[in-house]
Amino acid sequence: MIINNLKLIREKKKISQSELAALLEVSRQTINGIEKNKYNASLQLALKIAYYLNTPLEDIFQWQ
């Protein structure tokens, strides 16, 4: 199981879903879906999320 901390980290950094989506060149709905565990981010997208949030990938998506 993967624990998804994207919403928590994004909100801590005061970045909206729309802002993050624009940086990543995806839709806001994609970010929303990832945060609600409706969609799994591809490895490429997960790495981009970590880069733009300046946060280690394993802090955003944790295996349990």
Rank of each mutant, 00 (worst) to 15 (best):
M1H: 10
M1F: 13
M1P: 10
M1G: 08
M1A: 10
I2M: 11
I2Q: 07
I2R: 09
I2E: 05
I2V: 13
I2S: 08
I2C: 14
I3R: 09
I3M: 13
I3P: 05
I3W: 07
I3F: 10
I3T: 13
N4D: 03
N4S: 04
N4Q: 03
N5A: 05
N5S: 04
N5Y: 07
N5Q: 05
N5L: 07
N5F: 08
L6R: 01
K7N: 05
K7V: 06
K7A: 12
K7D: 04
K7Q: 13
K7H: 07
K7S: 08
K7F: 06
K7W: 04
K7L: 07
L8P: 08
L8I: 14
L8F: 10
L8N: 14
L8C: 15
L8S: 15
L8D: 14
I9F: 08
I9A: 07
I9M: 07
I9V: 11
I9L: 09
I9E: 04
I9Y: 09
R10V: 04
R10D: 03
R10C: 13
R10N: 02
R10W: 06
R10Y: 05
E11C: 10
E11T: 11
E11Q: 12
E11R: 09
E11F: 06
E11I: 12
E11M: 13
E11A: 08
K12N: 11
K12Y: 09
K12H: 09
K12M: 15
K12D: 09
K12F: 09
K12C: 11
K12R: 14
K13T: 06
K13E: 06
K13W: 06
K13N: 11
K13H: 11
K13D: 03
K13I: 08
K14F: 08
K14E: 09
K14T: 05
K14N: 14
K14R: 12
K14G: 15
K14Q: 12
K14D: 08
K14P: 02
K14A: 10
I15Q: 03
I15T: 04
I15S: 00
I15Y: 07
I15F: 09
S16Y: 04
S16N: 05
S16L: 05
S16H: 04
Q17S: 05
Q17T: 07
Q17D: 04
Q17W: 03
S18H: 10
S18D: 12
S18Y: 10
S18E: 13
S18R: 14
S18A: 14
S18F: 08
E19N: 10
E19Y: 09
E19G: 10
E19P: 01
E19H: 11
E19R: 13
E19M: 11
E19K: 14
E19W: 06
L20Q: 00
L20Y: 02
L20K: 00
L20S: 00
L20W: 03
L20V: 02
L20C: 05
L20F: 05
A21H: 02
A21Y: 02
A21I: 03
A21Q: 01
A21G: 06
A21K: 02
A22C: 12
A22L: 11
A22N: 13
A22V: 11
L23D: 06
L23T: 07
L23H: 12
L23M: 14
L23N: 08
L24Q: 00
L24S: 04
L24I: 10
L24C: 15
E25H: 15
E25A: 11
E25R: 14
E25D: 14
E25N: 15
V26D: 01
V26G: 01
V26A: 02
V26E: 03
V26P: 01
V26L: 05
V26C: 07
S27Q: 05
S27F: 03
S27G: 07
S27K: 08
S27N: 09
S27A: 06
S27I: 04
S27T: 11
R28K: 13
R28E: 15
R28F: 09
R28N: 07
R28I: 15
R28C: 12
R28V: 15
R28H: 11
Q29D: 15
Q29H: 14
Q29V: 10
Q29F: 07
Q29W: 12
Q29N: 13
Q29E: 15
Q29M: 09
Q29S: 13
Q29L: 09
Q29Y: 09
T30V: 15
T30Q: 08
T30K: 09
T30H: 11
T30L: 15
I31Y: 04
I31G: 00
I31F: 02
I31R: 01
I31T: 01
I31A: 02
I31H: 00
N32Q: 15
N32Y: 09
N32I: 15
N32C: 08
N32F: 05
N32M: 14
N32L: 09
N32T: 09
G33T: 07
G33M: 15
G33D: 15
G33I: 08
G33K: 15
G33H: 12
G33P: 01
G33L: 15
G33Q: 15
I34M: 04
I34D: 01
I34S: 01
I34T: 02
I34Q: 00
E35K: 02
E35S: 02
E35H: 02
E35N: 01
E35V: 02
E35C: 05
K36R: 12
K36Q: 15
K36D: 12
K36M: 14
K36Y: 06
K36F: 06
N37V: 03
N37Y: 07
N37L: 07
N37M: 08
N37G: 15
N37E: 05
N37I: 03
N37A: 07
K38D: 09
K38F: 13
K38R: 12
K38W: 13
K38H: 12
Y39I: 15
Y39R: 13
Y39E: 10
Y39S: 08
Y39M: 13
Y39N: 07
Y39P: 03
Y39K: 11
Y39C: 14
Y39A: 10
N40L: 11
N40I: 15
N40A: 14
N40S: 14
N40Q: 14
N40F: 12
A41W: 06
A41D: 01
S42N: 09
S42P: 14
S42E: 07
S42A: 04
S42W: 05
L43C: 14
L43F: 14
L43D: 04
L43S: 06
L43M: 12
L43T: 08
L43N: 06
Q44W: 11
Q44V: 10
Q44L: 10
Q44T: 13
Q44F: 11
Q44D: 13
Q44R: 12
Q44H: 14
L45F: 08
L45D: 03
L45W: 03
L45V: 06
A46I: 07
A46P: 00
A46C: 12
A46T: 04
A46R: 10
A46M: 14
A46E: 03
A46V: 06
A46F: 06
A46Q: 10
L47A: 11
L47W: 07
L47V: 12
L47M: 14
L47C: 15
L47F: 07
L47Y: 09
L47D: 05
K48C: 08
K48H: 05
K48Y: 04
K48N: 07
K48F: 04
K48V: 04
K48Q: 09
K48W: 05
I49D: 00
I49G: 00
I49W: 01
I49S: 00
I49L: 08
A50Q: 04
A50T: 03
A50D: 01
A50F: 03
A50K: 01
A50S: 11
A50M: 04
A50V: 05
Y51V: 08
Y51M: 10
Y51F: 13
Y51S: 08
Y51G: 06
Y51R: 08
Y51N: 08
Y52A: 13
Y52M: 11
Y52G: 03
Y52H: 13
Y52C: 08
Y52K: 05
Y52W: 11
Y52D: 00
Y52S: 05
L53R: 00
L53M: 06
L53D: 00
N54Y: 05
N54E: 15
N54G: 12
N54T: 08
N54Q: 14
N54C: 10
N54L: 06
T55G: 03
T55E: 11
T55N: 02
T55Q: 05
T55W: 05
T55V: 12
P56C: 07
P56R: 09
P56T: 05
P56V: 05
P56S: 08
L57M: 11
L57W: 05
L57C: 07
L57E: 01
L57R: 02
L57N: 03
E58H: 13
E58C: 11
E58I: 09
E58K: 13
E58F: 10
E58M: 10
D59A: 11
D59R: 08
D59K: 10
I60M: 05
I60G: 01
I60W: 02
I60Q: 01
I60A: 02
I60T: 03
F61G: 02
F61D: 00
F61S: 00
Q62A: 10
Q62L: 08
Q62W: 10
Q62R: 11
W63I: 08
W63A: 05
W63H: 06
W63L: 07
W63R: 06
Q64S: 14
Q64I: 09
Q64G: 13
Q64K: 12
Q64T: 11
Q64N: 12
Q64H: 13
Q64P: 13
Q64L: 06
